[in-house]
């Protein structure tokens, strides 16, 4: 009879632990963001991978000023045009006190607008590299310069631009992969779970130890 209560509670904890293996969902919201062209894409999801739908998202600059806010869609996605060339702190509020933030660094923003290039007014230059190149190639011609020289310049420029675009695209792809990976691992791991249980019983041991010492010294 002495062990029955502990046995009961052990049985309870073990059965809960077993249950938890099959469905490791829990509540914690995550947000992840990346810049693509002139927009910033954000994705919010709970640990377990479920999207945080219809959640408020706020964007702050480095001085803490609120730049804009919006709501996530049914897939937890919220995108906005880059409001400023600054570190952007993106905060999601998923209700019930769930909040998370992600900072898109200034250096991560594509530098298309900040560059002192004459034809940067075109907003979707990053989206299609050839478009920008065509524009550039017509410019020197219209200025009346010798065709041969400008051709040399263009090939080098084209090369640089193509490489740059390529790198940008790869970077975005890597970020997306990272996001996917993060999402897959969003649930807490069973290893940590068991570790936590170990800690709790360790604390119990310490508590008993100190009580025992106090008693024996009395």
């Amino acid at each position: 009879m002495i062990f029955s209560r502990t046995r009961f509670i052990i049985a309870l904890s073990v059965s809960l632990l077993v249950l938890s293996v099959t469905s490791a969902h829990a509540h914690r919201v995550n947000i992840f963001a990346y810049a693509e062209g002139n927009t910033v894409m954000t994705e919010s999801f709970f640990s377990g991978g479920k999207p945080a739908m219809n959640s408020k998202v706020e964007v702050f600059d480095s001085s803490g000023k609120k730049l804009l806010e919006g709501k996530t869609d049914n897939e937890g996605i919220f995108s906005f045009a880059i409001p400023a060339r600054d570190d952007l702190k993106i905060v999601v509020y998923a209700g019930e006190g769930h909040r998370s933030e992600y900072i898109v660094k200034k250096s991560e923003l594509p530098a298309s607008e900040g560059e002192p290039v004459a034809d940067s007014a075109e907003p979707d230059s990053a989206a299609s590299g050839t478009q920008g190149i065509n524009n550039r190639s017509t410019q020197p011609v219209s200025a009346g310069e010798p065709v041969a020289i400008s051709n040399d310049c263009i090939t080098e420029e084209i090369m640089n631009k193509t490489i740059k675009d390529r790198i940008e695209k790869e970077k975005i792809k890597i970020k997306k992969d990272m996001l996917l990976e993060q999402r897959r691992n969003a649930g807490p791991s069973i290893v940590k779970l068991i570790g936590g249980l170990g800690y709790i019983f360790g604390i119990m041991g310490l508590w008993l130890f100190f009580i025992g010492r106090k008693k024996s010294s009395e």
Partner: peptide, 21 residues
């Protein structure tokens, strides 16, 4: 003193419960 293991066991039950969706 004799209740401390019970506290720890229920603490772990609570700790684990948040994984059961």
């Amino acid at each position: 003193q004799e209740d401390i293991p019970k506290v720890a066991l229920l603490s772990s039950a609570f700790f684990v419960a948040s994984f059961i969706h």
